[in-house]
Simulated assay, not measured.
Amino acid sequence: MFTINRENLRKSHQLIWFTIDFLMLGLLILNLCLIIFDAIYSFAGVQRLMAENLPALKTAYDPIHENFIFYDLIFVSIFLTEFLVRWAYAIRAKLYSRWYFYPFIHWYDLIGCIPVGTLRFLRVLRVISIIYRLHKYGVIDFTQTRVYRFFDFYYDAFMEELSDRIVIKILTGMQDEIRRGSPLFERIQHDILYPRRAMIADWISQRVAQATEEGYVPRRGALRSYLEDRVDQALKQNVELSRLKYLPVVGPTIQETLEEAVGDIVASVIHQLLDDLASTRNHGFIEDIVNVFLPERHPEAGAYEHNEALMSLINEVLEAVKKQVHVKHWRKAL
């Protein structure tokens, strides 16, 4: 069952109305139970079963069953009285901009009061509205009940499955459109991506500079040692260079000097390249790459040329999104 926050109930300025809500909630539940029992009692088989096993109860309930509308009207009169009292309070407190708005907003209260057939069961809507109102003001908390958690879990699972299927179908349709070379790809390329080339270049430039600075600068010494070792090994395996040591007197010196010079040059070039990537000087290089992927269309061109690299990129992005959508988060809660 839900819990009642007595502290909030005591501090509330609407204590009288909350008390009436609890009273009406009890009457509604009692009335609905009576309606259900009377509907079951209408079957001849049930009446025979009660006559055989519970004759006293059948004798006591027969007059109620025969005059059920009268007894139901007693509940209806209480519900209508409460409805009129709340309507009068809404007019006095000016809760709505027009005095006649209240019955339209609380239409379920009126329809549930009609004592005819299945319309009686619409009083369940009033039960729900009262519970929701009490929960909204913090008087009760039904989110921790087993019934709420049960329906909330399967509602989330249903909505996730439904939304996943819709999203996957839409993304698959977009991939098909791109493969067929439809105007969709052309609009993505020339109406969305191309006008934002500068922004894309700036963003990629910043990301490359940040990644290079964080990954390269702290390891500058280790990278230089690694490059020098690799170059030294490569030079030692070079046949032409190894022949220099056979030169009389100066051969070994030339070989050693050349190895050190080549190693230093390679390391310096790579370090300078990484330093450039880690600074704002990489912007021109990144901008050239972006321009290759997003070339400007010439005015005399009759149709857009298909950029296979960009098409592949967009397709892979959509495929990655589909794989992520396939993940069933609700199953992790089982």
Rank of each mutant, 00 (worst) to 15 (best):
S205Y: 02
L244E: 07
D264M: 06
E319C: 03
L313A: 15
E259H: 08
E260P: 00
H190F: 14
I192N: 04
G221N: 11
E214M: 11
P195G: 07
R220N: 10
A267L: 02
P195N: 07
F293G: 02
T212Y: 10
K322G: 01
L313W: 07
V217P: 00
H283M: 03
G251P: 01
I289S: 03
I192K: 05
A320V: 13
N291F: 03
V321C: 08
L277E: 05
I204K: 00
A209N: 05
M311V: 14
E319F: 13
A320P: 00
Y216W: 15
I314H: 09
L258N: 05
Q210S: 13
G284C: 02
I270P: 00
G215Y: 15
I200K: 01
M311G: 15
V217R: 13
A209G: 05
S205W: 01
L235G: 03
R281P: 01
K245Q: 11
R207D: 07
R297T: 09
E308F: 11
R281I: 04
L193R: 06
L258S: 09
S242N: 14
R196P: 00
N315Y: 11
G221V: 11
K323E: 13
G302T: 08
V231I: 13
V217M: 14
E319V: 08
R220W: 14
A309N: 14
Q189F: 01
T257E: 13
I265A: 14
I314V: 15
P299S: 06
R230Y: 12
R243M: 14
Q324G: 11
A222H: 11
T212A: 15
Y216F: 15
Q206F: 05
E256S: 14
I254K: 03
Y246L: 10
S279V: 04
A201H: 00
F285Q: 03
S242K: 14
D275S: 07
A234H: 04
R197H: 04
I270S: 02
M199E: 12
Q237V: 07
E260L: 02
R219H: 15
E259Q: 08
S205I: 03
V292K: 09
A201D: 03
R297H: 08
S242Q: 15
Q272S: 12
V269F: 07
A309Y: 12
K323A: 13
H271I: 00
N238P: 01
R196L: 06
T257A: 15
Y194F: 07
R297I: 06
Y216G: 03
S279Q: 05
V231K: 08
R219V: 12
E287T: 11
Y194P: 02
R281S: 11
H190I: 01
A309D: 15
A320C: 08
R281F: 02
A209I: 02
S268Q: 12
A222S: 14
S242F: 11
R196T: 04
H190Q: 05
Q255E: 15
L241K: 05
L318D: 06
V321E: 04
D276Q: 09
L310Y: 06
G302H: 10
R243D: 03
H283Q: 06
A234M: 09
R207S: 09
I289H: 02
Y304P: 01
L227P: 06
N307H: 10
R224F: 04
I200D: 02
P195T: 03
I314F: 10
R297G: 04
N315Q: 12
I286D: 02
G251R: 11
Q272N: 10
